[in-house]
Design a protein around this nucleic acid. Structure first.
Length: 329
DNA sequence: AATTGACCCAACCGCCAGTTG
DNA sequence: GCAACTGGCGGTTGGGTCAAT
């Protein structure tokens, strides 16, 4: 492939001197009118065609973070804050994945907001913004396997979302991206809260599953299903108290309905939870945890014994929030 | 009014994965 | 299989703004 060398941002001897720094209104106008007429098929060749002395990378950034018409600027509302915090707990610093659940917000904007506002907010609440655990939480040393499974699902879906959006971008460069596909787990969740049943999501225990997004080539293998099916069992300790999965799920549904007031996240919930390390699969493995005296079931078991509703409430709220944000896309 | 420091955010940088020849 | 290239992402920075002194 022949590269238009003048469009690279790297320093080169044969380069055209490229402008850096803030964009002028004239440059914005040039970029906008070019994209309006031709779309943005190739960022590498766009600057020269549009008459801009910028590298393609800079043009792409300007477009995606500022000029795109579907960007909402201004303060984040409580619902958005809530969603960001909870998605960060699930996905870590994967801003683009988080942005996929926040319509009209860019990853860069969310990243900035996290670094300048939300991080401090959590710290003030006594929560470690990276692990989402209360600092010095006595139970913070164990991570339940089932939580890891749920986390794994979230990450898996996130990766799928990214792959699909990449595919779509390649298939049609100029037209705006379609709304991201549902987090399948959340889709089932949402379905269940609006008349469907979550049981149908878990119904097929034979290993086949209808969980497949229209564009995804991924399907649930037996192994994947085993992990997926861990969701109901993730509530096993509670199920033991409540008497089976159905009841557990119904309980979760009820709570999720109660948490429809998405502006209301009780900090006590977060504090009492001692969030598990959701990002454990993404980040390098943490140092071995110090020995701790928790009952069988570790973090989960302990918290459940003390306050099982709080745990369910958190997940109800988290999943509900993501589903809510998807509904608005 | 001048200075200082904190805060905010647009833009840049470096890295990585995927694609192409 | 390899090198060159592109697009995308997360981390970081620099300059503008604002409040406190």
């Amino acid at each position: 492939m022949e590269e238009d060398r003048s469009t690279r941002c790297d320093d080169r001897e044969d380069k055209v001197v490229l402008k850096k720094g803030p964009w002028s209104p004239q440059e914005d106008q040039k970029l906008l009118s070019y994209i309006h007429q031709h779309g943005y098929g190739s960022w590498a060749s766009l600057p020269s065609k549009a008459g801009l002395k910028r590298c393609g990378k800079s043009c792409r950034l300007r477009w995606t973070n500022y000029l795109r018409p579907d960007i909402r600027r201004g303060k984040f509302n409580l619902q958005e804050e809530d969603t960001i915090i909870q998605l960060h707990a699930l996905l870590g610093n994967r801003w683009s994945a988080i942005a996929a659940h926040l319509p009209k917000r860019t990853g860069n904007e969310i990243k900035n907001y996290w670094n300048t506002h939300l991080k401090k907010k959590l710290i003030q609440m006594g929560i470690d913004p990276m692990t989402h655990k209360p600092k010095n939480h006595p139970l913070g040393c164990a991570q339940p396997k089932d939580f890891a499974n749920l986390c794994h699902m979230a990450q898996w879906e996130s990766a799928r979302l990214e792959a699909e959006s990449r595919l779509v971008r390649r298939q049609s460069a100029a037209p705006p991206l379609p709304p991201p596909q549902y987090f399948d787990v959340l889709k089932a969740w949402e379905n269940s809260t609006t008349g469907g049943t979550l049981n149908s999501f878990f119904a097929d225990s034979n290993g086949s599953s209808s969980l497949q997004s229209p564009t995804s080539t991924l399907s649930f293998s037996n192994n994947n299903l085993a992990q997926t099916a861990a969701l109901p069992t993730a509530f096993g300790p509670i199920g033991g108290n409540l008497g089976g999965h159905d009841q557990v799920i119904r309980g979760i549904m009820d709570i999720s309905v109660e948490t429809q007031d998405e502006d209301n996240v009780d900090p006590i919930i977060i504090e009492s939870l001692g969030f598990p390390s959701f990002i454990a699969d993404v980040a390098p493995p943490p140092p071995p945890p110090p020995p701790c005296d928790v009952v069988a079931g570790g973090w989960w078991g302990s918290v459940v014994e003390e306050d099982d509703e709080v745990v369910v409430n958190y997940w109800g709220s988290t999943l509900n929030d993501v589903a809510f944000s998807n509904r608005r896309l």
